[in-house]
Amino acid sequence: MSIFIQLLLNGLIAGAIYALVAAGFSLIYSTNKFIHFAHGVVVTFAAYFLYLMFAVLGINFCLSVIFTIICAGLLGWIINEFVYKTMRKRKASSVILLIASVALLILLESLILLFFGPSVKTINFLEGGIGVNIFGAMITSLQIVIIFIAIILFFGLWLFMKKTILGKAMRAVSNNKDVAEIVGISSKQIYAWSFIVGSSIAGIAGVLISMEQNLDPVMGTNLIIKGFTGSIIGGIGSVPGAIIGAFLLGLVEVLGIWFLPSGYKDAIAFIVLFMFLIFRPQGIFGKKDFSGKII
């Protein structure tokens, strides 16, 4: 029984991390309507940036974190401004934008690899050693912090989307870009803002992940796959759906390891993704008349 609870907890922690990636990804998708695969490398960038600020340069931790989040948002803005915007001007389709984002992912990952080397890095800010015992399962205080921050963040994001003018404008563009433009919302600006907000969330994800895991230059690929799969499970383009989907993915993965060797953990996400793409591309919560890529 305690093993089961332990697995459940592990799944929840993994899910929280995936959900942090999925939330930003899904926010960007909802307005921009293409798969920004390079979102994963923004997370990696944030983690390494924090490493540089805090562990290498020895800057105050809080200051490093704030700086990291700002720089992640800035990176998102730069990516949109200098790559996607140029391509959108040429009326590039979502497929072309996807290929470009894969190229971006590899480009930035390789740059990080070049500067920081292939060896894994660690940030020791909070020693997560002391565990808390819940029904016989162990959870570290750091993991509790991660789940706690994730939940606050999701609540904040929800408030942002519901209450602020910018959030409402984003939802308007997401629903119908043309109608939104008629009402006077500049979709170009909203695209840019989605990248800034979404990438800042990726920055927060990067900070939390860097405290929990070792950093490695290609971790972004893995993270965006998990985040993307979570978004598909919950219905792509819906931020709350993506968050729930990501948590579900975390649980499925952990439970899957019961049946498969742990090396297949990442493959499980793909099998889930495959199943959803083929049988239910609109996700669990998506509307039935999904008018996506299927005739």
Binding site: L98, L273, F274, I278, K293
Partner: peptide, 10 residues
């Protein structure tokens, strides 16, 4: 049945 970016990801 998948097209475009969905096929790419699959």
């Amino acid at each position: 049945k998948l097209k475009g970016d969905y096929l790419a990801l699959a």
